[in-house]
Every structure is written in C-alpha cells, then in structure tokens.
Amino acid sequence: MTRKYEDLIKELKEILQKIEDNQTGLDEAIALYERGAVLIKEAEELLASAELKITMLGRD
C-alpha cells in the first residue's frame, strides 16, 4: 500500500462527483466511468499484492 492507493481513492471520489453532476456531458460521464472501473481494478490489485515484509535496522 502506498501513496498510490491514496491517490486512487482521491481520483475515484472526484470521478463519482463529476458523474453525479448534471453539468457533465454524457460522453465525458461514460469516459469517467471507464476510468473509474480501471482505477478500482488497480486499487484491488494493490490490496491483493500487499505482503508483510520486515526490515531490521542495525544498531549503532
């Protein structure tokens, strides 16, 4: 999990807001939806690829 996940979630929220807005054109809404679907898949892949890793720092 990274800053990337945070960015994905942020963009998804913006997309939702735009689609719900009546001012957004139909073409744009459909394009936004397609982009949203891609982002969700990416986020799910990020979740699936997470694994525990332990790095032990040396002492002084």
Binding site: L12, I15, I19, E20, A29, I30, G36
Partner: peptide, 19 residues
C-alpha cells in the same frame, strides 16, 4: 475491499442515473 466494492456500485448507479 468493502469500500472499493461500494465505490464500484456507486460508479455504476451514478452512470445509469446519468444515462
């Protein structure tokens, strides 16, 4: 994961509503 699924549902319903 649950939140992502919820977002996905919202995306779909909001596009349908827009259509």
């Amino acid at each position: 994961r649950e939140s992502l699924a919820e977002t996905s549902r919202k995306l779909r319903t909001s596009l349908l509503a827009r259509l």
